[in-house]
Amino acid sequence: MSTEILANLSLAVQKGRAKDVEALIAQGLAEDFTAQQLLEDGLLTGMNLLGVRFKNNEVFVPEVLIAARALNKGTLLLKTQLVEEGVKPIGTVVIGTVQGDLHDIGKNLVRMMLEGSGFQVIDLGVDVAPETFVEAVREHKPQIVALSALLTTTMGSQRGVIEALEGAGLRGTVKVMIGGAPITEAYANEIGADAYTADAASAAQMAKSLVAA
């Protein structure tokens, strides 16, 4: 078991090499790395490093998209290992990235962990308008609505969804969870969300305790 695999995984994400990512994940699992290690110390480390270069505009949008594709392929392979498969659904979650925001990697991870914890998840995708969330709540009657936002400029859309739910008289029927890199506990309190967590694993824990309560 050598940590070279983790470093190579991180590099493969940064270069957007989906095929290499898949091969390295298979190799890593065969060498008894945990799925958690491969995800956090390999895939996500790579995306964070690329994120720093993206911030400095040293890499360009298409490169980051291609890296995101490679990362998503990798997480799909880890899915069965990351989640202990639940038997019967313990509840329903409607999830989506809010309007104006196209970042879906974090949201996809949260969805995966929720599914693994036994939730049925309705994924509305990215750039989801408040009305679309409202309609989905009406239609699917979930216990939880989960909102992802990665941009400081789209954080406000999370508040917009909560207001739209209030306007439709549905706020009392669901718990609202929010997350994404710029989000904080304080912000969640400010906009009247029910819960915030910093990562996908804790998001699943939190969702469980919300439906148990």
Partner: peptide
Amino acid sequence: RGGTAQMINQLLGALYLGGS
């Protein structure tokens, strides 16, 4: 240089996210 690179990414963002 920094401003130009940032502009490149903004415009590439518009191009790609405008329906690639």
